[in-house]
Nucleic acid binder design. Structure first.
Lengths: 197, 197
DNA sequence: GTGGTTTAGTAATGGCCATTATGAAAATTT
DNA sequence: AAATTTTCATAATGGCCATTACTAAACCAC
């Protein structure tokens, strides 16, 4: 019973996601969000709670819809393919939409006022979770002989993430996709090979 | 004639630099700045102008005092030493001060409200200038035979900067210096060498 | 010491911010 | 159709923001 919701929650979430992607958490105001979503302020509050909750929902959606290349990559047969898929996909994602370049997780709250600390922590945790998955995948690769005994899975995972994050920063600075692909190729040229093969 | 200034401009600038480093441009309020500097609001305005001008002064100081490893690196004899010096120095700088990790230029304004656009552009330009110097250095290395004919100086410069920026992000997420050094080693592991030597 | 000039510090100003009170409108239930 | 419940939209609220009048104090030249 009661009145029906007149807007599409998913569409509003997509609109909010784009605004946060472009302006970051603190840089995005409710004026920006309502304009992008075409929905009045109180509707956003009643549907999502406060700004932090809205950002978290947008972040979840970001991982679902745009970071799906991570689980894809983890299932590839060799560690090199895993790294290559992640880096090429990141280069693509960070330059795909001229309106919001770079990475939501990084643009979101690298720095900001103390009030944004909880949000910052959420993003740090999300990054750490991704990196942990990658490290485990590389540990498996080492056990399987795909990576040499001398390989350090934690360093390799951190390296792949660092290059990906660095490309996100560069994308925000206006780098072309081709340049980011060249960066990816240079990064992959350092990939260790199993010397016994 | 007239009254003397009672505070040390350099010290105030250092204090402001630290605040911007930690909180970014928009995240730093005048309440933060005056508290850190121990100087009242109007004194900051009369000495530096507005917030943007203060940030620019702090940024200049940042390059002078903390990014001096870039000109140092450019004078080293081989391209590999150049890259190594930059990456190790960045790993060190980004983790040197627990209170303000990462890089001022990146924490500053990766994303934010539209009002911060001019500041964002200043940082983009500063990054681009550094990268251009690096590219020119690698072009020289290629001409000197230190890098092979197949090497792409622009891609190598972008790669070094990407790894450095990525490490800055990771430092902000709490990575240890040791981990960043491992990332650096991985990045340097296949620096192109002149095959004719 | 006095006049002119620069700085210091208090306290204001207007604007934007996230959040919400209030009441009208719409839909479901009885 | 009447009662109830939920959403919608206007407009308010209090807080923090960058910026600045304004007054008092400190210094220099004469």
């Amino acid at each position: 019973m009661g009145r029906h919701r007149e807007f599409d929650v998913e569409k509003v979430l997509d609109a909010a996601l784009c605004v946060f992607w472009r302006k970051g958490y603190e840089g995005a105001s409710y004026a920006d969000l309502t304009e992008a979503a075409g929905v009045e302020r109180p509707a956003l509050y009643s549907a999502f709670g406060n700004k932090e909750a809205l950002f978290r929902r947008a972040l979840d959606r970001y991982y679902e819809r745009y970071m799906d290349f991570i689980p894809e990559a983890l299932q590839l047969p060799t560690s090199r393919q895993v790294a290559a898929h992640i880096l090429y996909s990141a280069a693509d994602l960070h330059t795909r939409y001229p309106g919001h370049t770079g990475c939501l997780g990084i643009n979101g709250v690298l720095a900001g006022s103390d009030e944004a600390e909880p949000v910052r922590q959420v993003l740090i945790d999300a990054r750490a979770a991704g990196e942990a998955q990658l490290r485990e995948r590389f540990e498996r690769a080492k056990a399987e002989g795909d990576l040499p005994e001398t390989a350090k899975p934690d360093a390799l995972a951190a390296f792949v993430m660092a290059v990906s994050h660095g490309m996100a920063v560069q994308a925000k600075a206006g780098f072309s996709r081709e340049m980011l692909q060249a960066v990816t190729e240079q990064a992959l040229s350092t990939w260790p090979t199993d010397s016994s093969t």
